[in-house]
């Protein structure tokens, strides 16, 4: 059952990155869109993600619940030493979530919209940036459980080049996912071209940010190169991701939306796979070489069994309903648009 739980944890993180990420990305794209087109982007986005918006963010909750029920030491260690970035991320989640619903459900449409929009866009950048910082800090080995002063314990645990680079990388990936997703959601050629251009830019930025991550790792003496290229799975996954990048660029010029989406999702999956594979089962590295492991720091067998069954049972209900939701709105859209 332990492995079932771990698979669910990994899958929820992946799905949060893909679905929640595209959702954040839509806000990021909106921020980097010229004033003139912002409204269009916004409408396309609302049409595209409105119905599944709530559901996209449930993956984060599932991951957190799995952590605190199944791996309480991992949850509490991160909560204590990454308190500050977690709070900032939460502020981002609050601001973004509420601004999204305010701007879509406010009964009066007036200047308030400008405020909602601005909050929504900035929070869409800040939140994934800090999510990236938190993820980076987990594996950077800077969390010092023996620190004696505030800065060492609660600030330098997360504030270093490596985590900042991962933060930027996460933002770029979210933007990229959103742009690719939105290409297929527009109803006119002009917007389509716009999103294709955005997808290109954000893809280039993601590649640059990815390179930055390697540089930062080198600066911070984190053996990232060895993690990624030191094993067959890592090399294969990165190789496949790079190959698919070529294909992706080719397709961007030929506009095959469905395959594009699959490719973008595939690349992000490969990146997550590479970075987690080498670490497994140690997902939190502490200063001085100690670590917290998904296998050794898991809860007792009975709890894991109960959690595993709860998750399996849950997916029997959730997955079909979720697919049907997405399916019906896809169908509805195509019947409206064409």
């Amino acid at each position: 059952m332990l492995y079932v739980v771990i698979v669910f944890l990994w899958t929820s993180i992946l799905l949060y990155l893909l679905l929640g990420g595209a959702d954040f990305g839509a806000g990021i794209i909106e921020l980097f869109t010229s004033k003139h087109n912002q409204d269009n982007t916004r409408k396309t986005m609302y049409r595209a993600i409105g119905p599944i918006w709530e559901a996209n963010h449930m993956w984060l909750i599932i991951a957190i619940v799995i952590l605190f029920v199944g791996f309480p030491e991992i949850y509490t260690t991160m909560s204590i030493y990454l308190h500050i970035p977690l709070v900032i991320m939460l502020m981002g989640i609050i601001a973004r979530g509420t601004a999204f619903s305010f701007r879509n459900y406010d009964a009066v449409v007036d200047d308030m919209q400008l405020i909602y929009n601005r909050i929504f866009r900035y929070a869409s950048c800040v939140t994934p940036f800090f999510l990236g910082i938190i993820a980076g800090s987990a594996v950077a080995g800077r969390i010092d459980t023996h620190a004696t002063n505030f800065l060492d314990a609660y600030v330098f645990s997360w504030l270093h080049w490596f985590s900042v680079a991962i933060g930027l990388f996460t933002v770029a990936i979210c933007g990229f996912l959103a742009a690719v997703y939105l290409i297929g959601e527009t109803d006119n050629e002009k917007d389509r071209q716009r999103f294709i251009a955005k997808a290109r830019t954000s893809n280039i930025l993601a590649v640059i940010a990815g390179a930055l991550v390697f540089v930062a790792a080198w600066v911070e003496h984190i053996p990232l190169i060895q993690w990624v290229f030191g094993n067959v799975v890592g090399i294969t996954a990165i190789g496949l991701a790079s190959l698919s990048l070529l294909l992706l660029w080719y397709l961007l010029y030929h506009g095959k939306t469905k395959i594009l989406r699959i490719l973008a999702g595939f690349q992000v999956t490969m990146i997550l796979l590479t970075t987690t594979y080498r670490h497994f089962p140690n997902i939190v590295l502490l200063k001085g070489g100690a670590y917290l492991s998904l296998l050794d720091n898991a809860g007792n067998a009975k709890t894991m069994a109960a959690l595993g069954w709860a998750l399996l049972l849950g997916s029997v209900f959730i997955l079909p309903a979720l697919f049907y939701l997405i399916y019906s709105f896809q169908k509805k859209k195509s019947s409206v648009a064409h």
Binding site: I52, M58, I62, V65, A306, A310, L322
Partner: peptide, 19 residues
């Protein structure tokens, strides 16, 4: 944690149904 993990399912269904 048991009720919280079941609750996750309930929330999820709620979010989907609301959609």
């Amino acid at each position: 944690g048991m009720p919280f993990s079941l609750e996750g399912t309930a929330f999820f269904i709620e979010a989907i149904a609301l959609g």
